[in-house]
């Protein structure tokens, strides 16, 4: 056993000890803590019924066939022609945000909601009427603490309670 190898063994073990007694921790304690996401996070999508001009660009650009144009029965009858509005299928959505970016009237918007669980497959499909009611609020067993990620020179990443 050469000397340099022994030194390397010692260095490895000492580094281990250093972290055993003084290391940082990077864990985000989800779901007790939930992270406040940055501006522009591509989460679930919000739909504004009134400003929509029914151009169907969102459905055309959707790469996953998640956004579809639904015939809006009531409006079609009222206006005497076929009126279609977008609805979304979250079992397919890949959160690329192309629909939001192409919407010419900003009727589709990003929200920061992403951690929603569903009981059934059907619940995840939102026809226009439901789509326009906004995104579901995630249910937590205990009210979580909002934290934000602080990038830190010494500890890498640190989660601090968010100022609300």
């Amino acid at each position: 056993m050469s000397l340099s190898r022994t030194v390397r063994h010692a260095k490895a073990i000492l580094t281990g000890f250093k972290y055993l007694f003084a290391g940082p921790r990077l864990t985000l304690m989800y779901p007790d803590d939930i992270q406040e996401l940055p501006e522009g996070y591509r989460g679930m999508i919000e739909y504004d019924w009134d400003s929509c001009i029914k151009c169907s660009l969102c459905a055309m650009v959707c790469p996953a066939d998640a956004m579809k144009m639904y015939v809006s029965k009531e409006e079609s009858e009222r206006e005497g022609k076929v009126v279609k509005r977008p609805g979304i299928n979250y079992t397919r959505c890949i959160f690329c945000g192309f629909c939001v970016d192409i919407c010419p009237t900003d009727s589709l918007r990003f929200t920061k909601v992403h951690d929603v669980a569903y009981y059934t497959y059907e619940e995840q499909i939102y026809p226009p009427a439901e789509f326009s009611k906004g995104v579901p609020r995630p249910l937590y067993l205990r009210e979580p603490r909002k934290v934000r990620a602080v990038l830190d020179e010494r500890r890498g990443i640190r989660y601090e309670p968010a100022r609300s």
Partner: peptide, 10 residues
Amino acid sequence: KIAAKVQLRY
């Protein structure tokens, strides 16, 4: 626990 502490987790 020991492994976790060295590995920056709980």
